[in-house]
Design a binder for these strands. Structure first.
Lengths: 120, 120
DNA sequence: TCAATATCTGAGCATACGCTCAGATATTTG
DNA sequence: CAAATATCTGAGCGTATGCTCAGATATTGA
């Protein structure tokens, strides 16, 4: 993942526009941009978005989710792991089944916001 | 890009949880999830996020952006093309230089929203 | 016109990622 | 315990992606 082999970065020559401190608050450090990018990356996959959509209103077990997405339970399980790692979902075990639900309400707002935006 | 080689998708057996119509409005079609994923993917890269951060308050020319990010103008140009394709930035030519600015205020709100969220 | 600057672009490379496949683990049931 | 079910996991494959590099284009100025 780390793509940091010390870039050469030419010295710029266009004189008139290089204020020492960039405008508009701290210019987003590399580390902060990294975390932010990782967060958006979790939402950048159609399958994960459809999982979030299915979990929007109520919890679902894995095989339920796989059935609705018409994909394999393995694929769903892999994606749920990503959502778990990003702390976007939590789970509850009940017998053999594992029920997932959305963890972060903030993400739900984000999802609805963007969905509405793209619907124009 | 299209990963649609007709998935096998096993018939689920867990009986108790398969309502015919999923809950919570339309379950996000594959096409809609695709577009939504592509939108988030644009924001899933640290370099593009730092560009957006730099353009948050005022426009900048390419070499200016490259200088602030300590990277090459080529890399910045490539990323600006992605932002342009996503209609997130517009540009204005002035002599040799090209000045970029944010196009969509909606994205700025999203950016600030998530940044604040991750800052805890 | 020629040199310098600013930006763009395509090819190629290294890495990241999502899926399939095979198999492991855990729980229920006969 | 053994079979079936529900989920998880690692390996491997094909594709996507961001960068570098070399070069093209465009504009300015001597």
């Amino acid at each position: 993942m780390p793509r940091a082999p010390a870039r050469p970065a030419r010295e710029p020559v266009c004189e008139e526009h290089h204020p020492a401190s960039p405008p508009g608050g701290p210019p987003l450090s590399v580390a902060e941009a990294q975390r932010m990018g990782e967060f958006f990356a979790v939402l950048a996959d159609p399958t994960r978005l459809r999982l979030i959509a299915l979990l929007e209103k109520e919890e679902h077990c894995v095989c339920d989710l796989a059935a609705h997405l018409a994909t394999t339970e393995s694929a769903v399980s892999h994606q749920l792991r990503a959502l778990r790692a990003a702390r976007l979902v939590t789970y509850r075990k009940e017998g053999r089944q594992v029920f997932y639900q959305l963890h972060d309400h903030h993400v739900l707002g984000l999802y609805r916001n963007v969905r509405e935006h793209l619907a124009e």
